[in-house]
Nucleic acid binder design. Structure first.
Lengths: 231, 231
DNA sequence: ACCTGAACACCGTTCAAGT
DNA sequence: ACCTGAACACCGTTCAAGT
């Protein structure tokens, strides 16, 4: 929206990787993934493409850096409480970041499933894994439990954000979800009996409540498999 | 590899949406996402771009169609057994498809989190949801349980495929995983105590076993929350 | 109804040249 | 060491024109 606001940049300031990543995040926020272009970035930072390439290897590295910066900020807060509360807090924090930066979900999923060696996987693993460890899960199962949480949290948060994205106002959102539910209800009754049955819940469900219910389902599994824990 | 094999196409055959999607899948398989180009597609099908645009709205629709075609094929088999066995079978089927078509994971995650109205979501929802229903879960929790399974299965399968992709031979793969584990082991001991502890499991873990363990964790949660069921 | 293919607007990236 | 900016190779998409 406020695309032109603050266009008068601190142009005297030296170019740096930090400033470039910051500008990239702003462009992504304002216009989505297609909005980040070296031409636009070049205008915004009042330089030429060569200057940007001096600080950043290529566009994919720039996207990775933008993703990492936003995730790091989202996970920065110290949280306290029971392990379950902490996991909820991390999940809601990531979900909120995805809401604020609609391009984030796709980048996050792509990065996790394409370059698992990057810095973003350990960040999220650590944030969710600490409370999992505090739950009393035996060490050999830490990875499994945390992986399930991580994939669910990112997948579900991304989907919720996408639903919210298509139609900003709550009224349109209801209409949008009703549209999907309606299409599902028209599927072949035999081939899609489950999806049809679930279409109603799709329309009425409360995002936040559903989201946390999924987490609690995983935690219930943890509690059932490792009853010695403090879940 | 066999990029040039079978280049002599049935050129007399009429162009159709089906043939275009088929060719797109072949190009994606051979050269990844960057390998699918309207120029290359045009050569392969011996036409001009206009001809393709007559059958397909744009590239994003073409990618969606290719994704849906591959997923439909992967889920085609009728499966029988206990609900748990069925869920394992669907998950392994999707995982195998992602292995055969390395571009699939990213497309799937993008499509689920960007255009939830598409045909691919109901397909996967149905395949996983039917056995969930058979588990005896109360209807109001079908959606939650199936969502958790879906996001985990796609996320984990995508990550496994990515790990396998980087280094085809098993020996290189071990090296690759050891590389990630090694980098994790070098992270700050305080800030990343969990990730460091888990780095070892990362190196040694068996993909398939870990993958199914995650599913069983979710099913344990289902069994714990809805003890009346037949899990 | 279906296809041709030149043309358009745009993209990421490079690199010789400057300071 | 850091930046300039023209140039390169390539991309998705359009559209008047053909059959």
């Amino acid at each position: 929206m406020a695309t032109r606001t603050g266009r008068v940049q601190r142009r005297a300031e030296a170019l740096s990787r930090e400033r470039i990543v910051e500008a990239a995040v702003e462009l992504l926020d304002a216009a989505g993934e297609t909005g980040l272009t070296f031409r636009v970035l070049t205008e915004r930072l009042e330089t030429g493409p060569g200057a940007i390439y001096w600080h950043v290897a290529n566009k994919s590295e720039l996207l990775a850096a933008a993703t990492d910066a936003v995730v790091a900020a989202a996970l920065a807060g110290e949280s306290e409480g029971t392990p379950r509360e902490e996991i909820h807090a991390v999940a809601l924090g990531l979900s909120a970041a995805i809401d604020r930066h609609p391009w984030l979900a796709a980048q996050l999923l792509l990065q996790l499933s394409r370059s698992p060696g990057g810095p973003v996987t350990p960040r999220i693993l650590e944030a969710l894994g600490r409370p999992v460890r505090a739950l009393g899960v035996p060490e050999e199962h830490w990875f499994t439990a945390t992986s399930v949480l991580m994939h669910y949290v990112l997948g579900a948060a991304g989907q919720n954000a996408a639903n919210r994205q298509v139609a900003e106002p709550a009224a349109d959102r209801a209409e949008f979800l009703a549209g999907i539910a309606g299409r599902w209800a028209e599927l072949d009754p035999e081939e899609y009996s489950f999806t049809r049955a679930v279409a109603g819940q799709m329309r009425e469900h409360d995002d936040r409540e559903q989201f946390l219910a999924g987490i609690d389902l995983v935690l219930a599994g943890v509690g059932a498999l490792y009853p010695g824990g403090r879940a």
